[in-house]
Design a protein around this nucleic acid. Structure first.
Lengths: 344, 344
DNA sequence: TGAGCGCTTGAAACCGGTTACAAAGAAAGG
DNA sequence: CCTTTCTTTGTAACCGGTTTCAAGCGCTCA
C-alpha cells in the first residue's frame, strides 16, 4: 500500500502538505494541490483508516446494535433487510460504513440470564473502534437496555423504540396516523363494531397504534368497549388467540385492526377456523406490509411502512449528530394504506 | 479512555510488558502479569483497536459484501436475517466483528451501468481497514464480480455462489442431495410424471438442484422429457408462468419440484388459477423453507436449508483462512425435507 | 570462576496518518 | 522603506498500540 510519505517524497513536499490536500484543500496552493492529487490518483493512494482513526479519534464507522433475542429464538425483525438497505445506502453516500457489533462477552452474560444487549460491552466497543455513533435495532425485548445507550452520551438512533438522551433520538413510522387511516378505511366500508389487537403495552409503536385507533374511533363517534381491545405480542399465535376471544364475544366485532401483519395473519387463521368469511363477515387490517401480507388468502389490507425510508432517516439522524449537529427530533415516517381483499 | 501507558505507569512496568500480558501472556512473569491484569480490570482497560490494527496490520473485522441489485430492485435474499445471525454469532465467538461495506464510489459506477459490486473499490476498502477477510453474499446477479474478489488473494467465502481462488471458497446447501430427497418423496407418493422448475442456468445452486433432480429421477427409472424442465429465475412470477406452461402440456406432470419456494408459490397460484387441486391433482415441492412456505394455502412441502448454519460455516471458513489455515473445501450443508400439505 | 543459556524486561523504533507551531515569503498599510 | 498581516509550507510531536533488540539476571555446567 502506498503511504502518505511516499506521495510526499514523489511530489517533493512534506507529508503535512499531502495530508492537507485531502483534509483542508483550500490551505494548499493550487499548484502543489494538483501535483499531489495527480500522483495520488496515479498510485491509487488510499489513506489507511486505522491510522486516521487513531490520529483523529474518529472512524468512518457507525455501529449497529442488533441482538437476537435469546428468550424468543424464533423472533425475526419484520423488515430487517429493507432497513439495512436504507441504512447502508444513506451511510455510504456519506462515506460511512456499518459495523455489526457483536459483544464478545454476551454469551457469558446470557448464560447467567443477564441483559440481552449489554450496554457496557457495546459502549466499550464504540470507544475501542472510535465509532461515530450507534444505530439500535429493536430485537423484541431489549428496549430497557437501549435506555442505557441513550444515556451514554454517544450519538444513538433507535428504530421503533422511543429512547431519549443527550444525543439520542429515534425513528419510527407514524403509528398514530397509520392506525387512524385503518380505522377511517373500515368506517368508510360501513363497519361500526371495530376491535383492535394491540402489541405489547410497553412497546412505543404498539402504544401509538392503540392511541391512533382510539382517537380515530372517537372522531368517528364510535365506542370502543374494553373487550374490543386485546393485547397481543406482535406474533402470529397471539393474534390467533386474541381473535378467537373476540369471536367468542356475545357481540363480536365486524372488523379488527391488528398492530402487526403477523397477528393479522393469526386473526385470519382464527376466522377461518371459526368458519367466518373474510371480508364479508369479518374485515381484517394489519400493519407493516410484510411480504406475506400480499400472499395470504385473502390478501391482507395493511399499513405499509416505508421500510427503507426508516433506514435512511436513521442514517441521516445519526450522521447529523456525528457531524456535530443538534440532536434531531424523533422522526415519524408516513405510512400508506394498502387495500387488499381482507377488508373489501 | 485508559491507555497502555497509564497502566504501565500504575504498575511500575514498561508498556511493552503490558502489551505482552495481553498478547503473549506466557512470556511475562506470573507476578507482573497478575498485577497488570488486576489494574487493567480495575480501570476497565480496553486496547484501542485502531492503534492495534495500525501496528499489526490486522483488524478484528471481516467485511461483508452484500450489494443490493439495482437491476432487480425487488430482489430480496431469501434468508438474510438467519444468515446474519449465524455469521454474527460465529464471528463474535472469536472476537471478530462484521463490517458491512459500502462502496462509496458505487453510486457513480451504477450510474454508468458498471458492475454492481465493484471489486476494486471493495478490495481497497479491505486494505484501508485492514480487514481479515470477506464474506460475499449473493445478491442475485453479481456472481461474475465475485470471481474478481476470489482472485484478489484475500480470504473470501461466498455464500451460495461457487467461486475459486487462492484463498477463496464457498458455502452452500447440499443442493444435489436436497433435490434428490424431493424426488424420492414424490416417487414414494406414487408420482411418475414429475417436472421441475429450475433457477437460472448460470447459478450454481440452481444447476446442482437440477443435477440432483435428474440423478434421482434416473435412479427411480423415470424419464424426464425435455419439456418437463422449465427454467425460471427464482422469483415468483417466473414460477407462475413456468407452471402455466407445464399445465398446458398435452401430458402435464402430476408433481413439480421447484428450485425455490418463491417459484413454488408461483406454481401454487398458477395451479389455483387453472382450477387444479393441490396436492390431489398436482403436488408441489419447493426449496429454501422461507417463512412464507408454511403459510401459503396449502402449506408448502419444501427442503429446509440450515440457514443460520450456513452463516456459521461461512464464518468458520473465513476465520480459518484469517488465522493462516489452509483454504477449506467448499461446504455443502445438509437440507431437511419438510413435508406439508402441498405434496400429501 | 567464568562461559553459556534461558527467561524477563525495558528502550526505542515503528505502524500511517493529523495537526500545533514556527518560519519564510508575499502582500498590504503607514 | 519598514512594520504588520496573511498565506503557504515544513518540522516534529502525537495518537496508542506492537515488536525488535539488547541487556540484565539467575542458573547450570565445565
Amino acid at each position: 500500500m502506498t503511504t502518505i510519505r511516499e506521495i510526499a517524497q514523489l511530489c517533493g513536499v512534506s507529508v503535512a502538505t499531502v495530508s492537507r490536500v485531502f483534509n483542508q484543500p483550500l490551505t494548499v496552493s493550487k499548484e502543489k494541490r494538483e501535483v499531489v492529487e495527480r500522483v495520488a490518483r496515479e498510485l491509487d493512494y488510499r489513506p489507511n483508516e486505522s491510522a486516521r482513526a487513531l490520529a483523529t479519534k474518529r472512524s468512518g464507522l457507525i455501529g449497529l446494535v442488533w441482538d437476537t433475542d435469546h428468550r424468543r429464538p424464533g423472533w425475526r425483525h419484520p423488515y430487517l433487510q429493507e432497513l439495512l438497505i436504507g441504512l447502508k445506502s444513506a451511510l455510504s453516500a456519506h462515506g460511512f460504513h456499518l459495523l455489526m457489533l457483536a459483544t464478545s462477552g454476551s454469551a457469558a452474560l446470557r448464560a447467567v440470564g443477564a441483559s440481552l444487549a449489554d450496554p457496557v460491552a457495546y459502549v466499550n466497543m464504540t470507544r475501542r473502534h472510535s465509532l461515530g455513533g450507534l444505530v439500535l435495532i429493536d430485537s423484541g425485548s431489549d428496549a430497557p437496555a437501549f435506555a442505557a445507550f441513550a444515556q451514554s452520551g454517544l450519538p444513538c438512533v433507535a428504530v421503533d423504540v422511543d429512547v431519549d438522551g443527550p444525543r439520542a433520538t429515534y425513528v419510527t413510522s407514524d403509528n398514530v396516523g397509520g392506525a387512524a387511516l385503518a380505522v377511517r378505511h373500515l368506517v368508510e366500508a360501513g363497519h361500526r363494531r371495530i376491535a383492535t389487537i394491540t402489541g405489547p403495552r410497553a412497546n412505543r409503536p404498539a402504544a401509538d397504534r392503540l392511541d391512533g385507533f382510539r382517537a380515530a374511533m372517537a372522531e368517528a363517534g364510535l365506542a370502543v368497549p374494553p373487550e374490543y381491545v386485546v393485547e397481543g405480542d406482535f406474533y402470529r399465535p397471539s393474534g390467533q388467540s386474541a381473535m378467537r376471544s373476540l369471536i367468542a364475544l356475545p357481540e363480536p366485532p365486524t372488523a379488527v385492526f391488528c398492530a402487526s401483519d403477523e397477528m393479522a395473519v393469526g386473526a385470519l387463521l382464527a376466522a377461518r377456523h371459526a368458519g367466518l368469511r373474510v371480508p364479508d363477515e369479518l374485515a381484517v387490517v394489519g400493519f407493516d406490509d410484510i411480504e406475506l401480507a400480499a400472499l395470504v388468502d385473502p390478501p391482507l389490507t395493511t399499513l405499509a411502512q416505508d421500510k427503507a425510508g426508516i433506514g435512511v432517516a436513521a442514517a441521516r439522524a445519526v450522521l447529523t449528530m456525528v457531524h456535530g449537529g443538534e440532536k434531531p427530533a424523533p422522526a415519524f415516517l408516513p405510512t400508506r394504506l394498502v387495500v387488499r381483499a381482507s377488508s373489501r
